[in-house]
Write a protein that binds this DNA or RNA. Structure first.
Lengths: 260, 260
DNA sequence: GCAAGTTGGATCAAAATCTACCAAAAGATT
DNA sequence: AATCTTTTGGTAGATTTTGATCCAACTTGC
């Protein structure tokens, strides 16, 4: 095995396990402690491996149990938190709530606190968020995990929502125009329609970036939609037009601190 | 274990339990009180851990998306990993697998790697473990989250397994005697029975601590059980007796290193 | 306020690890 | 084929880390 190959192997191994002793690494690559020590010393020049006493650690360990959207969901946190607060304010204590998957709805879930006791969702991140709490009853739909998004999809998921009812459904989408609301995943569209049918009140949370955009799949017109929550960046013309259609449109004020 | 690794472990542990005594930490990382004291003193320089009389506490409260069993699942890791490996070895590549909830089954899931492509489970931790992978199709049962365990229970969960079939089911329990296998949660028993009915081959993973113990609820006799996997600490008499009943009992050898 | 028990800090010997060096082995070059 | 360079595995001394112990400070119960 060439030194380069060995070092690559060490680096890959470290990414998996985060920490490893020199002995462990030596055994793993089939070389002596001395050689591995030298390798690790060389690897330390880069920014991915650091030496420690007795071994080495990876500086960028593979987080397998975090969802992608939690990672990339960083640039519009303020807007989404504002939407989350505004939407949570619409929900009466004690109601049971259907929560859609997607980043915006996750922010709503974070703002709900102990207000609601019963939550129905197909979002793994939402489920995880409440899973430690004994004060919430979380009903997770069945289904197949949509890779790297943590959304449950498929016939089981649709069926779950077809059979359950809630006071409120909080949904999101990837686009909204004067004609209706759009989403980019066919599988999710079907689930969302079931969610809407199963809820007495339907709230859509859409940040301003979604306004005026049409995405691949048409989800619904505004017949079954009660409220739309967005942030202050939404284009006023479109907001006005939606209100003209009889919709309640709530524009969340920016930059309010999260409650304690 | 390197100092850095140990400190990382302490910090992670503190984040989960919020507060821990030095003795508890020492036991957790397998070091002496003195060493842990030094570690905590060093960690205090950062902004995430503060020392207290007799222990330390985390300044960053627990992220609720970690499950309790990941916390207390630390003292028998070697045995459970051994069981996990031995059990994973029983599964043919390409089979679809039902995986039960519980710590032992979670270890099996960790050892499966890319061997299986289709996984059916009612365990949120297992689902999370595979959720980032595009090489696995994970079917999560519906149901209500059992607080702080991350297990989906209730009629929806039972129904899911009643309607699905798999080549192998990997289950666990909280006790095993010559009469059969026991579990401590009535709701889970029902789901496990559905799992067993839906699988061509049934494997039970039970660490040695479960042997000779009877728990609250009787799950099943050995009629529908094909294999039992345990670790080297299991009492030989009981193992022999089970084998006498025609069961395949696999005793996982201790202390095998994690595969590459 | 006092005694008993616990905890924190400092110190020290033992163990483990690191650095530096050296000789052997492997590969490249002439 | 012979020689040179590079890499490898091992060894000795220096350094770091560890676990135990002692004593002061603190908490607790009376």
């Amino acid at each position: 095995m060439s030194p380069e190959e060995r070092q690559a192997k060490i680096e890959a191994y470290l990414q998996k396990v985060e920490f490893a002793s020199l002995e462990e690494l030596a055994h793993h690559v089939g070389a002596s402690i001395s050689t591995v020590r030298r390798d690790v010393a060389g690897l330390e020049g880069g920014k991915r491996v650091r030496r420690t006493h007795g071994g080495a650690r990876s500086l960028q360990p593979a987080k397998s149990d975090e969802f992608v959207f939690n990672v990339r969901d960083t640039h519009q946190v303020a807007e989404k938190d504002a939407i989350g607060q505004a939407c949570a304010a619409l929900i009466e204590p004690g109601q049971n709530v259907i929560i859609d998957s997607g980043t915006t709805c996750f922010h709503v879930a974070q703002q709900l606190g102990d207000k609601v006791a019963q939550i129905i969702t197909n979002s793994l991140p939402v489920a995880n968020h409440f899973s430690g709490s004994t004060r919430h009853e979380v009903h997770l739909s069945g289904g197949v995990i949509y890779p790297r998004l943590g959304t449950l999809v498929g016939p089981h998921a649709v069926e779950t929502f077809a059979r359950m009812h809630a006071d409120v459904a909080v949904l999101s989408g990837s686009g909204i125009s004067t004609e209706g609301i759009y989403n980019s995943h066919a599988l999710i569209v079907e689930i969302q329609r079931a969610m809407m049918r199963g809820a007495a009140k339907v709230i859509f949370c859409l940040d301003h970036g979604k306004f005026g955009r049409r995405s691949t799949f048409f989800l619904c017109d505004f017949t079954g939609v009660d409220v739309i929550v967005t942030d202050a960046g939404a284009p006023p013309e479109l907001v006005a037009e939606l209100r003209g259609k009889g919709l309640e449109v709530i524009v969340a004020p920016p930059a309010a601190r999260a409650p304690g």
